[in-house]
Write a protein that binds this DNA or RNA. Structure first.
Lengths: 204, 204
DNA sequence: CATTAATATAGAACGCGTGCTAAATAAAAT
DNA sequence: ATTTTATTTAGCACGCGTTCTATATTAATG
């Protein structure tokens, strides 16, 4: 198999470097000016390439935004970890984590939009919006907290999934349907916990 | 107070008529071709007015989309009612309603996006996205179903709100984070119910 | 009539995401 | 140096939501 003539494809490291360069700049813009400020044209200008070049490295805008998730999720995760430091009792830990989780998304609508609402629902393309392992880890944390309370393995995943989606739902409702007189966020979160971990969980 | 000269403001009925004419056409487009097909320019063309005229009657696109909610919610509501017809036991009724509710949004991503994700989260403008009474009624239904099970009045609203936001959260997660291996939808919904109505609810 | 105020209009503009094409450039083999 | 191939580029295009301005048009008053 002789090497073909012509310019060889970019090395994988080059590709990764370019991608991360773009993603990094996108993050900088997002951090400084929020969701709406991140546009393909501007991003290209700040990266120093033509707008079309970005499309050679990413599927589209959604594919770039995905890289901002990690930053937001890490921020959220660290906020939760901070609150958890001085708490030992498993039930209280889960409770604090859940309350902090919901509060985070309610208090940061832009972050919520980025992670949970910037998906192009139209596309059923499976390859878009992959949850990489790093991203998953931040949700896994809840699984651990639940596990400390529930022993039954099979229930842990179901409970955790329900808890997470339920919490995200609370945040979504608070973010989008603002004028409906929702029950106090803490109370809703608490109620959600109660049902998720019903057998063992005791209300504070 | 003498009447001022010049053309008088449009009568309220005229304004309402024009608004409903635009909203009606928007609904027609949405029904026929879905979310993405509804655009201001096209809507204006089909209504037979200039694009700018619409902005004299609506705050913006989000203000128009709001009018499509009613249609979708009515559709969802009737689907639930249909399923409820032959069920008498309160717990089973609530269970069926919840399952149908979640399934509806999971099966109709476009509808979900319209109602729960087309909000401009950036705006903290309270006047945008008002839940009118007709719209609220469709959610009120769940309050009634919960009431049939729980007697404590104060718990009914908290339980219902938690249930609704939780169900919406399940739908959101299924719609947006597709590649995460979520627990079976029915199971999550069931688990959500269990915690919401924990004291009385019995698993099937 | 003319005047006046409310409304509707056309038309341009801005920036957006994204696709297409044709030209330029870069890096290898010959 | 020339050829060959990969990549990037510029530039145009489409339709989008939205804002602005200037120009009708409409319906009341005097």
């Amino acid at each position: 198999m002789a090497k073909t003539a012509g310019r060889p494809p970019r090395s994988e490291s080059d590709i990764a470097e370019y991608r991360s360069k773009i993603a990094k700049q996108a993050l900088a813009i997002y951090r400084a000016e929020g969701f709406d400020a991140v546009s393909m044209r501007r991003l290209a200008k700040e990266v120093g390439c033509a707008p079309m070049t970005i499309y050679a490295h990413f599927e589209g805008k959604h594919d770039i935004l995905r890289y901002l998730w990690a930053d937001v999720l890490a921020d959220m995760s660290s906020e939760i970890q901070g609150k958890l430091e001085r708490i030992d009792a498993p039930a209280e830990r889960l409770q604090m984590a859940a309350q902090t989780f919901v509060s985070y998304w309610v208090d940061h609508p832009d972050h919520f939009r980025l992670v949970f609402m910037s998906n192009d629902v139209t596309r059923s393309d499976v390859s878009t919006f992959v949850m990489d392992e790093e991203t998953l880890a931040h949700f896994q944390m809840f699984s651990d907290l639940v596990q400390d309370i529930l022993q039954n393995e099979s229930n842990v995943k179901a409970s955790t999934d329900t808890l997470i989606s339920g919490m995200i739902g609370i945040a979504l409702c608070l973010n989008t349907i603002r004028d409906y007189p929702w029950t106090d966020v803490k109370m809703m979160t608490d109620r959600l916990l109660r049902s998720t971990i019903s057998p063992v969980y005791t209300a504070p």
